[in-house]
Design a protein around this nucleic acid. Structure first.
Length: 570
DNA sequence: CTGGGGTCCT
DNA sequence: AGGACCC
């Protein structure tokens, strides 16, 4: 009857939370072992974001202001950690390693992972019944009286956690801490009880004891500053107060869904699944800065960011289709989160695949910079004085690059399986071939022959043969295909990549996506809706460009490199 | 004198 | 596009 009780007694899962100890600091100590025996902190601008444990003994805390840190520990050695590249790289290696243990691994930041070990435990229990002993700490004093078998499962979970931590240490020279419990919330909370390089096991009967050790509701992951403030206004600050607050009051303040969620959390109930993280859905960089006031500086900074960003994108291996510019304007009423952003689609033809890495050639770089500056002028009136305190660039909506050997069927697979999380190692298996500098597209050799048959091979089979094709990363839900998402470059706007929604709607306004006449209808029918969309858009754009060309002296235009080209039939 | 990232929801 | 949350 009461769903709360049903869930409260569901201990069927075994969840392990793994938290790499002072992650950035450990990476820095690997890079420079001399830092191991002295107090060391990792600095980003005016903040010491983390430090090794020697520094922590002196009282250094996470995200401490530089000034305070230096006062507390004048001897602290600081390492700049503003470039997360190396941290990100090692972080993904760890996650990929964890995926050997379970298909369900969820990343949280760069240094934490949840792992659903339920089936691993069940498997292990089938073959092993003796000598099962809890590893590491056990939280609380209560005996476990639960008869659902959770004690045995969680105990096995602690053995697995120990193995995993050992393997991480062995593989990466990284120490980490772990929490084992029957849900994510409790695994994370209990893992914090013994750090660093230790692990803690929670049996369900000790749940309340664990929760009551928290000082405030905002110590519950999932309750942040905003909710914390509202709860304070409701007279709620402790866990106990949240547990006992009248549900209708909570519902009035947060809505039923949120209310249920946080009251459940306050009772240690968390049914959220461990979601496989897969590859990142966005890749971005930010740089906070002191007061930029000149357009030249903006351009400069953005170019630097773009260069760094291209390295990350190349390592990722996918092609992004939208770019977002984020800025923060100086504000005397220093409001938090005073950021603005503008986003626009970009064409895949901007990117060049060369020796298995992705590059921006001069022309493309200029075009990208120009569309980014257009975004900038949408947020800032450059004729008036301004000062910018942060610039950020971020790519999203990636197309997966496939390797053709994995066969054409994978291209049309309904459910895109989660692929190995990132191809950091890709860099290492580059095969350099001088011939292999091709734009990201298929040259249809000779613009006149564009729609003409080519002798033997279809364009598509060429594509497969060349092992260069792309797969939409996301399976669009029908709601994504609303008219609002249709973006077509109008003839007036072909010179700009930024198909701004304002000027990109064309007369047809259709929900109707059509198969272009030059594309094999059978193939078209099989591809995901979103790809159909893009193929259709590409076709429209080509028509527009052709029209424009008629008005101009005939210049050999470089072929546009689009999805459409993949599907051109002969 | 407040990093540099990410995720999901609205 | 912004806001909440996480690290």
């Amino acid at each position: 009857m009461d769903t709360k009780n049903i869930h409260a007694t569901d201990h069927s899962r075994v969840i392990i939370h793994i938290d790499i100890d002072c992650f950035y600091a450990q990476v820095e100590m690997i890079k420079n072992p001399e830092l191991r025996n002295i107090p060391m902190g990792v600095q980003q601008k005016n903040v010491v974001v983390t430090s090794n444990y020697i520094a922590r003994e002196t009282g250094i805390k996470k995200c401490m202001l530089l000034e305070d840190a230096l006062r507390i520990c004048p001897k602290i050695v600081l390492v700049n950690g503003e470039d997360l590249h190396d941290y990100r790289q090692i972080s993904y290696k760890v996650t990929t390693h964890l995926q050997k243990y379970s298909s369900q691994v969820e990343r949280l930041g760069l240094d934490e992972n949840f792992l659903d070990a339920t089936s691993l435990v069940e498997t292990k229990l089938k073959s092993k019944h003796e000598n099962i002993t809890a590893k590491g700490h056990i939280f609380g004093n209560n005996e476990n009286n639960c008869d659902c078998g959770c004690q045995l499962r969680l105990t096995v979970g602690s053995e697995i956690a120990q193995e995993i931590r050992d393997s991480i240490r062995h593989e990466f020279q990284l120490t980490c801490s772990a929490g084992i419990a029957h849900n994510k919330l409790l695994a994370k909370l209990v893992g914090a009880k013994h750090k660093p390089n230790q692990q803690t096991l929670l049996y369900p009967n000790s749940t309340c004891e664990l929760l009551y050790q928290l000082q405030n509701v905002v110590d519950i992951p999932g309750i942040g500053r905003a909710m914390g403030d509202m709860l304070k206004n409701l007279g709620v600050s402790t866990i106990r107060e949240l547990q006992h607050l009248n549900f209708d009051k909570l519902k009035f303040a947060f809505g039923e869904e949120k209310a249920k969620l946080i009251q459940n959390l306050s009772n240690g109930i968390d049914n959220s699944p461990v979601k496989s993280s897969g590859k990142p859905t966005s890749i971005g960089l930010e740089d906070s800065c002191r007061n930029i006031t000149a357009i030249g500086e903006v351009k400069d900074k953005l170019n630097q960011l773009m260069n760094r960003l291209m390295v990350l994108v190349s390592e990722d291996g996918r092609i992004p289709r939208t770019i977002k510019l984020t800025i923060r304007k100086f504000d005397s009423i220093s409001k938090m989160s005073n950021r603005e952003s503008r986003q626009t689609n970009i064409t895949t033809s901007l990117f060049t695949v060369k020796s298995n890495s992705i590059e921006l050639q001069q022309k493309s770089a200029q075009r990208l910079t120009s569309t980014i500056m257009t975004l900038f002028t949408k947020m800032v009136d450059v004729h008036k004085p301004y000062h910018i305190t942060l610039l950020g660039l971020s790519f999203t909506k990636f197309l997966e690059r496939m390797n053709g050997k994995s066969s054409i069927t994978s291209f049309f697979r309904k459910n895109v399986e989660v692929q190995s999380i990132t191809n950091i190692e890709n860099k290492n298996d580059l095969t350099t071939s001088p011939m292999e500098c091709t734009p990201f597209s298929y040259d249809l050799s000779g613009s006149e022959s564009e729609f003409e048959p080519s002798p033997k091979k279809t364009k598509f089979s060429k594509l497969i043969a060349k092992r260069r094709c792309f797969e939409a990363d996301d399976c669009p839900s029908p709601s994504k295909l609303k008219v609002a998402d249709l973006r077509l470059s109008s003839a007036k706007n072909v010179s700009s990549d930024s198909s701004d929604s304002k000027n990109s709607f064309s007369d047809d306004n259709s929900n109707s996506i059509c198969c272009p006449p030059n594309v094999d209808a059978a193939v078209f029918k099989e591809i995901p809706k979103e790809l159909q969309q893009e193929v259709w858009n590409d076709y429209k754009r080509e028509m527009n460009e052709k029209q424009e060309q008629k008005l101009q002296p005939v210049i050999k235009k470089p072929k546009t490199n689009t999805l459409l080209n993949y599907f051109l039939k002969n």
